[in-house]
Nucleic acid binder design. Structure first.
Lengths: 201, 201
DNA sequence: GTATGAAACGGACTGTAGTCCGATTACCTC
DNA sequence: GAGGTAATCGGACTACAGTCCGTTTCATAC
């Protein structure tokens, strides 16, 4: 009961109740194995058994740590997107800070479109909500939300940001490109959409 | 070689090369079985074996006719949406024809949002592209495209229509509602988006 | 160091989507 | 109506995601 020591496993805020050392080690091993296998064979050709074997753990462990195949892919994705995020947070303008908000939004669209296509197989493997769950996803939403506010957009900005991101989801892009619409046209369309949402420009 | 008879299986346009009678019979039986099972147990609890058994055919046949579980669900969906489509084509305004385009678009959004949520389980089972493939999906796109044109929207109207539909996809709606955003707010947000896309209003 | 309880482990097991190929059947020609 | 052929059929088979539970390992207390 009495917390005599001041140096405990700090059960501070909400959930993250600290992870046992073997658990942490396995999480890292699994993430590494998954990253390698995805790089070698493409996300669509990586099975959970593969990942478990490469990491040298049992299959049950993969699921205990990541919940599902989609969950694992989201975790890999979050790693892969770290560099992109750093570009947005502290890279050179106009993607990074320092440029006017509208130019940052333009740069964001261009860059996000590229990144989504590059990580296409991971995003598809991460499943429907893959591009919408996990740290990477909320970072993106947060960023657009912020830019829209800076641009003086009024109303339900949260929903407008979501609406602006929706057409950049991989499934939709796949569909459009299958129909013969190329990336260039998609980008122009998105910029037009952004312009209309932001208003007068 | 020589086409002496004028009354052949008419290989007219593109694909539909006519279906053998047993094939057609089985397609109908499968569709019926699937519809019943979905109604009884919900799409997420219907397996391909169930459907094959209920229709009294082999499992291979289900896949030959519909390609995949998602394909089957899209087919069921297309049936389920027939009534909704008829409302749009020839029902009373403002959803049906006769009302000003803007009012029709408002009615469309409201109605589409409801329908998507109602058919949620089917749409989810139809998978990512489920709401974007099949006759039902292209009908919806076509309709929005048409209304936007009537409203004098200029630019890449095809892409704008797609962008306007994207936030109504079931996965996104699920996500929003999980976050505690209710249907009413989603609808208001969508109408705001539509207003911005259409311009001045 | 030892004891103890909780958490994590692993791999056999289950359920289901999707494939394969020999047997069957519809349909056209003569 | 017999024959030929290409499409269709069916159900055993494969591959993979996800579950379950007896066993092992970690962390803390004493």
């Amino acid at each position: 009961m009495s917390d005599t020591s001041g140096l405990l496993p700090l059960p501070l805020a909400g959930e993250p109740v600290a992870e046992r050392s073997d658990a942490a080690r396995n999480r890292a091993a699994l993430l590494g194995a998954a990253r390698e296998l995805v790089a070698e064979h493409g996300a669509e050709n990586v099975t959970m058994d593969d990942v478990a074997a490469r990491a040298g753990v049992g299959k049950g462990t993969v699921f205990r740590r990541f919940g599902s195949r989609a969950g694992l892919m989201v975790a890999v994705l979050d790693q892969s997107e770290a560099h992109w995020q750093s570009q947005v947070i502290s890279g050179p303008p106009p993607l990074g800070p320092g440029a006017p908000a509208w130019e940052r939004l333009e740069a964001f669209g261009r860059s996000r479109l590229e990144t989504t296509i590059t990580h296409g197989d991971l995003l598809r493997a991460a499943g429907a909500g893959g591009s919408r769950s996990g740290p990477a996803a909320s970072f993106v939403l947060q960023h657009v939300h912020h830019l829209l506010l800076e641009l003086g957009v009024t109303g339900d900005v949260r929903l407008l940001a979501t609406a602006l991101l929706a057409p950049l989801e991989i499934e939709l892009l796949d569909e459009l490109r299958t129909t013969g619409i190329d990336t260039e046209r998609i980008l122009r369309g998105w910029l037009d959409l952004a312009r209309r949402i932001v208003g007068g420009r």
